[in-house]
Design a protein around this nucleic acid. Structure first.
Lengths: 210, 210
DNA sequence: AGAAGATGCGTCACTGATGTTGCAAGTAAA
DNA sequence: TTTACTTGCAACATCAGTGACGCATCTTCT
């Protein structure tokens, strides 16, 4: 499970070595979550939204937001960190190295979609300069690569596919499906994605002019 | 051909009915183009870039930018307008209604890719509330739809495809391919896109477990 | 109940970006 | 060459967003 592990409110400026992670009181933790979720909603609709708007959506005062997240930057970092952990969990939970490629592909897709739908803004605001984000990013990339290789060896993918392009298209399909306004179920979308990835939209045997 | 037809520098505030489109002097027109191109480059790298940075990249003073484009907003509108016209020309030039579906699909893809690569930021900043943009948008959407129907009827696409999802994936593939850093040729990318769209990455006859 | 913690509110300071104006110097076009 | 246009520069006004405090009040936890 992903934990909050948020850091640095306005008070911890001369932090130094005392950056102990003190547990939050119950109400404070609720507030932090409310802010993160509100930020996702508001920034998702308008990436240039102000702290004021985020605070309002979270049902707190703007100063409270600043108390929890020293700067706007810090808030975004916290969001991406949280989303990244969710993302990592989603991939891990699908056990992509342990199940048959077809199953893994479907499971990973569905799990990631759920996170992507709920944390779309944060997942797009990822900064590769953050060590945690970068680590998860490459880790997932590796697993994706391994999964595709297994899929290829199992005859699920053609032997001559460009794995890099395949991955990029796969990511793009997930991204596109996540934009679905009609609130489709993640499983339905995952099915569609995998089907599209594997078969495309053409006839099974190429153009029918044969 | 798309024309500049830029409007409203800082002076034309009480414009009224005298919004005659006076032709620009040669040097001024060069400046306008330089600003538009610089804006595309700079904003493409950092959407939050300042007018100052754009001006610098264009090799002019910030005040000159404001002389040509009263507000930042106006600059973006001009960019999207310009890009939109290029986009429309790109689609039209491919004659999607007149050539065989397979040819049209390839030509449209290649032409649009060229615009998308050069005007990526502007094409993403499109505002559907602008009448010109909205018109081109729906027009292209219609042509895309007709093209896909013809492709389906010609046996290029499966009879049961979801045309809406197909179009979204098509757009996403173009978008993804346009991000290619390696400066690949538009024709190469178009080939890859069409191939991916039609065949996906799986085996021709489905999973080989047959 | 009491202590520690959390929030709302009002307020202030600071910063960076935007948009405007006047003027002198340079450039295109007739 | 003359005229109209264009640009750079410097200065100015404005404004929105950000971040920081102190204090009174309320909540949580022990």
């Amino acid at each position: 499970m992903a934990t909050l592990s948020y850091s640095s409110g306005v008070t911890s400026k001369a932090g130094g070595a005392s950056d102990r992670v003190r547990p939050l009181r119950a109400d404070a933790e609720r507030t932090v979550r409310a802010i993160l979720e509100a930020a996702e909603r508001v920034l998702g609709a308008n990436p240039a939204a102000t702290m004021e708007q985020i605070a309002e959506a979270a049902g707190v005062a703007r100063t409270t937001v600043h108390r929890r997240f020293a700067t706007r930057e810090a808030l975004i970092v916290a969001m991406t960190g949280w989303a990244t952990r969710q993302f990592h969990d989603a991939v891990t939970a699908a056990r992509p190295d342990a199940t048959p490629p077809a199953v893994a592909l479907y499971q990973v897709t569905a799990n990631v979609l759920r996170v992507k739908i709920a944390w779309g803004f944060a997942m797009n605001a990822l900064r590769t300069d953050d060590p945690e984000v970068a680590h998860v990013h490459t880790d997932v990339l590796d697993r994706c690569d391994r999964l595709f290789r297994r899929a290829r060896d199992a005859g699920l993918l053609r032997p001559d596919v460009d794995l890099d392009w395949t991955r990029r298209v796969y990511y793009a399909l997930i991204h596109e499906a996540a934009q679905d306004d009609r609130g489709e179920d993640a499983d339905v979308l995952a099915t569609r994605i995998v089907d599209t990835l594997l078969r495309g939209f053409g006839m099974p045997d190429g153009p029918s002019a044969r």
